[in-house]
């Protein structure tokens, strides 16, 4: 007898999210459940790795294995998990501060190693958990408690960064378009390599009015409707430059010929090297004086 197909609710844990009512992350979580159900891997074969921040609470709200780690370090930790058990479906989740500020140094390296990980950033342009400070994606001039006179810095552009780092799958979504977002998450997970989805997930408490889902609904522009070819990396970069002014959703870039993943190369190396292994209790023979 085959088990009935998994449903979104099979991935939902009993833990109640602590997010503020109206938070964009609720929608992201729902979209995630659905994407997982559609993919159909049982929860115990899925590992969610996150850092610190409102959105990094996500692993606890799923029935999968979760690791809610420390601020900014989810990517290296996830790589250790994936390399140790490549069969797992590993999803990394976190906020814009976690990923592009404190953890920013890890991102290019995670991308260039190209493990089959999916990185979901819930980008809300503000630090929510610590009460409304400037974040790396906050627009220039934004007044926050740490920039009461307006920020003097330009925000980073996560989409352009990821494309420049050579990421094989770069997309943007918003929970204002639930079906589109769920489909993108699913598509990202199915991409055989490192995939990135920047999810514009508004902060209902500290976010700007024009960043809320209601505003998203009116301003989002699906890349598909613009006739964008997602295999055109340069066109993707050109479009990505509009981050912060335009809300494009959909796939910016998807490598039509994904290269082998890091873990696949590791597997090959392990198989090739296994022949040369001494018995483990003879490892010291390597140092035997001839």
């Amino acid at each position: 007898m085959t088990a009935p197909p998994l449903q979104a609710k099979d991935y939902k844990s009993e833990l109640k999210p602590i997010w503020c009512p109206g938070c964009g992350d609720f929608g992201v979580l729902q979209g995630l459940y659905r994407a997982l159900a559609s993919i159909g891997r049982p929860p115990h074969e899925v590992a969610f790795i996150s850092g610190i921040g409102c959105s990094s609470r996500i692993p606890g709200y799923t029935t999968a294995y979760g690791f809610n780690t420390v601020h900014g370090r989810s990517l290296p930790i996830a790589q250790g998990v994936k390399l140790s058990n490549p069969e797992l479906l590993v999803v990394v989740a976190g906020g814009d501060g976690d990923g592009f500020s404190i953890g920013g140094g890890h991102v290019p390296h995670a991308v260039r190693r190209n493990m089959d990980l999916t990185y979901l950033v819930m980008d809300n342009q503000v630090y929510g958990l610590t009460k409304g400070q400037l974040s790396p994606t906050s627009p220039k001039g934004l007044e926050t408690v740490t920039s009461p006179l307006g920020s003097l810095e330009d925000p980073i552009n996560p989409l352009l960064y990821m494309l420049a780092y050579g990421c094989g799958f770069v997309a943007q979504a918003t929970p204002a378009d639930m079906p589109g977002m769920a489909a993108l998450i699913e598509d990202a997970i199915r991409y055989p390599g490192f995939s990135f989805v920047n999810i514009q997930s508004p902060c209902v408490t500290f976010g700007e009015e024009d960043q809320q889902l209601k505003a998203h609904k009116t301003k989002l522009k699906p890349l598909e409707s613009l006739g964008h070819d997602p295999t055109d990396q340069l066109a993707a970069m050109d479009l990505a430059r509009a981050y912060g002014t335009e809300l494009y959703t959909g796939v910016f870039y998807k490598n039509p010929k994904p290269p082998p993943t890091y873990e696949a190369l590791v597997k090959l190396r392990q198989a090739e090297q296994a022949k040369k292994a001494r018995p483990r209790d003879r490892v010291l023979d390597a140092y035997l004086q001839k």
Binding site: R73, Q79, G80, S84, Q273
Partner: peptide, 22 residues
């Protein structure tokens, strides 16, 4: 590799211990 393991030379010390914890 001979013993089915892997080494990851990381981008920094934090990632070094991070990946090991993972």
């Amino acid at each position: 590799w001979k013993y089915g393991g892997a080494v990851l030379q990381c981008e920094d010390e934090i990632a070094g211990i991070g990946s090991a914890v993972g």
